[in-house]
Computed example of a mutant assay.
Amino acid sequence: MFPAKFQAVIFAFIMSGFMAFLMSGILTFINLGWFSGFAAAWLKAFLYAHACAFPLVFIFAPLSRRLTAMLIKTPELSGN
């Protein structure tokens, strides 16, 4: 498939795709309700959302990892 060096980019693309797809659908429904052109409106919103979300996920993933590491208690090593 793809070389391992592309893992971060592929992860960001897939994760942002899932989030953009779900959030754009939810927000389209909240703002417009169910109507005959809902699927087209959702698709348009998704395309805009994913175009924004992909680079943002890619850029902010390292910061998110660092903040998570600061919040997680790591087990202390013992001599036993």
Rank of each mutant, 00 (worst) to 15 (best):
M1P: 00
S64W: 11
L56M: 04
L67N: 04
I14C: 12
A4D: 14
K44A: 15
L32D: 06
L63R: 01
N80E: 13
F58E: 01
M19R: 02
G37Q: 13
F2M: 05
F11S: 13
A61F: 03
F11I: 11
T28W: 05
L27K: 11
L71N: 02
G79M: 04
E76T: 14
A40Y: 06
P62C: 08
I14P: 02
M70H: 02
M19K: 01
G37N: 14
F2H: 09
L67G: 03
N80F: 08
G25R: 03
F38M: 12
S64Y: 12
F6A: 07
N80A: 04
A53R: 00
G25C: 03
K44N: 14
L22G: 13
S36M: 06
A51V: 14
V57T: 05
I30K: 10
A41P: 00
F2W: 15
A8G: 04
A53V: 01
F11G: 02
L32M: 09
F60Q: 04
A51C: 08
L56H: 04
S16A: 15
E76F: 00
A61M: 13
A12P: 04
M23S: 12
M15N: 07
G37M: 10
P3D: 11
H50M: 13
A61Q: 15
P55N: 12
C52D: 10
T28M: 07
G79W: 15
A69F: 02
N31S: 07
F6R: 07
A61N: 14
A45G: 11
V9K: 07
M19I: 04
L22V: 15
T74A: 08
N31R: 15
W42R: 04
K5V: 13
R66E: 10
T68C: 07
M1W: 07
K5F: 13
A4M: 09
T28N: 08
M23H: 03
A69L: 05
F11V: 08
F60C: 07
M15R: 02
W42T: 12
M1Q: 10
S16K: 00
T74F: 06
L56E: 03
F60T: 15
F60H: 09
M70G: 01
G79L: 09
M23W: 10
L71E: 02
M15C: 10
T74Y: 03
G79Y: 07
R66S: 03
S16E: 03
F13G: 08
F13N: 06
T28V: 13
F29C: 04
L77P: 00
I72N: 06
I10P: 07
P3I: 01
K5D: 13
A40W: 01
M15T: 10
A4T: 06
F38S: 01
F54A: 05
A39V: 10
S78H: 08
M19G: 05
L56C: 07
S24M: 02
A49S: 12
S16F: 00
P75M: 10
